[in-house]
Design a protein around this nucleic acid. Sequence first.
DNA 1: AGGCTTATTGAGAACGATTGTCAATAACTG
DNA 2: CAGTTATTGACAATCGTTCTCAATAAGCCT
Lengths: 129, 129
Amino acid sequence: MADLKRRNTRQKDAVRHALGEAIGFVSAQQLHLVLKNHGSTIGLATVYRALADLAEAGEADPLQSKDGELLYRACTTSHHHHLICRACGKTVEIEADRVEKWADEVASEHGFTQPSHTIDIFGTCSACQ
Amino acid sequence: MADLKRRNTRQKDAVRHALGEAIGFVSAQQLHLVLKNHGSTIGLATVYRALADLAEAGEADPLQSKDGELLYRACTTSHHHHLICRACGKTVEIEADRVEKWADEVASEHGFTQPSHTIDIFGTCSACQ
DNA sequence: AGGCTTATTGAGAACGATTGTCAATAACTG
DNA sequence: CAGTTATTGACAATCGTTCTCAATAAGCCT
Ligand SMILES: [Zn+2]
Ligand SMILES: [Zn+2]
Ligand SMILES: [Zn+2]
Ligand SMILES: [Zn+2]
């Protein structure tokens, strides 16, 4: 389990940048297409690996889409949740200590430890009515 | 769009029953294996179709697992959420009007309509510590 | 700058969950 | 019971993701 030394590569930076430009949550395949269209020769597997790394580093938030795809979004590092437009993907970050506390309380009330949670809100944004 | 007439089949009943026996959330493949082990000759595709039907009818709750699998559980028909043990899958149904209201308010505060949400709590249950 | 070590890349194969195809079967109707 | 057609089951096909592995290039040390 000797931790391996991470290297900074031009590819990982490209993924980070493309993710930052994206509007809402995007898939690895979408990002790969965008990068290709911009002239990059980056491989699809590399995009998958870079996104997984960014998510582990807290630089990206992962989201299981309704149809089983794994989507990512560039995010602030503090814990938060998302309000997502079903039509255009526009996303608002949500913070609510009350709900965080509620989730942990529910867990401990039932004798569950090491609580974590998944909370996402969906809707149609004002521009997409 | 002529709605087609649903038929009651022995296979769908078998899936419904097997789902009821299951401990927590289970996958179509798991149910298929269980049914096979009990002597059934049901096809895998049929299990997938039956579960999708049950979910649409509100008789089962779907859950996207962390690793992209679609899991199901026999549930009450009223709206609720789940507290799930990461180790053994034991599941507790949670109802909390406060949180329901909060989610809808967050949506409307940001101009989002037709709100819906995904809320799941995970932890390690007392038996699995 | 030059050379060494090894993490990272990219192309393609492999994988696993899910869905589509289609002839055979079996629910319902009357 | 006979006719209509929704449903079944075996298999192929799809799709997102991961694996494999030889080639490349970061980081490090002269
Ligand atoms: Zn929108
Ligand atoms: Zn939270
Ligand atoms: Zn448990
Ligand atoms: Zn709810």
